[in-house]
Write a protein that binds this DNA or RNA. Structure first.
Lengths: 146, 146
DNA sequence: CTTGACCTTCCAGTCGCTGGAAGCTCCATC
DNA sequence: GATGGAGCTTCCAGCGACTGGAAGGTCAAG
């Protein structure tokens, strides 16, 4: 099948599919006599595999590893599990960072009257608080005037 | 002061400070006779402002807006509040996506025995589940064989 | 006078695509 | 057979927010 059909079947843009070929992630079996890429069921299958892994936040390099484990009949499932667990740890870390940002912003927003007066605790905070080297912004509630 | 000192004071790499000048975000007052950038207290202050806003996840373009609001004596605090609230919504969206990924991965990990046998539910899932067009991967618990 | 730290500029690379230009192929319609 | 439009090809450039490195100028200490 042509790349357009493969795109429809996988939900990936044709551009992305070509890109995956460029970087050697999923390479279609061959070309037709008109030089069009030719995708078989197996290619579509692998592209779907990648699409799903990407949607779970695995990097392209992770996907390469996962694909190679997938193709390896003798892989140990522990290797795959380790990748997934590392990914979970990344996600948890990211969530913690975002929660910290959110808490700070919510605090700032709560203290801002948000009308047409120029006085604004949010700007005051950004201007005066020096940032701690923790997850993001530990205290953030002391917006004292300079 | 030299860029190195400004870097120390703001916690930003000198490279980044030069970059911010390049894109016109924070431009130091002038140069010394030896062509070195010269940063004053106010410059450091603005760089700290940007550093803090960035640490709260505001984009560089957001920072540009925040700086211009900060410099505008007649701004309405509502404008700032709106930016912060939009940022909170972005963060919440991102957190939801990450939570969905995490849940799916945790489910997969739980079902993977993780030993040296090749059989692996994680790979099976990646290989066979087609992804829903929702937040990320709605069901993800039905790894049925094709 | 040399060494080494610090500063300058400029260019390239990161990651994962995405857009666009220029040109070829295919199929349907006139 | 000509024409038009969709779909395919390649290649190059750009996104955001830096980061690394090369090549060279400047400064202070020994």
């Amino acid at each position: 099948m042509n790349i357009g059909e493969a795109a429809k079947r996988t939900g990936l843009p044709a551009k992305t599919i070509r890109y995956y070929e460029d970087i050697g992630l999923v390479v279609p079996s061959g070309r037709r006599e008109n030089n069009y890429r030719d995708y078989g069921e197996q290619d579509v299958h692998l592209l779907q595999f990648v699409a799903r892994a990407r949607s779970l936040g695995f990097s392209v390099e992770n996907c390469r590893e996962l694909l190679s484990l997938y193709r390896d009949q003798h892989r140990a499932s522990a290797d795959v599990k380790a990748l997934a667990e590392a990914r979970i740890r990344d996600i948890e870390q990211k969530i913690r960072e975002l929660e910290a940002m959110k808490a700070t912003l919510q605090d700032l927003v709560a203290r801002c009257h948000g009308d047409d007066r120029p006085d604004c605790p949010i700007l005051s905070d950004l201007a005066h608080d020096t940032l701690q080297e923790t997850a993001c912004c530990a205290g953030a509630s002391e917006g004292r005037p300079r």
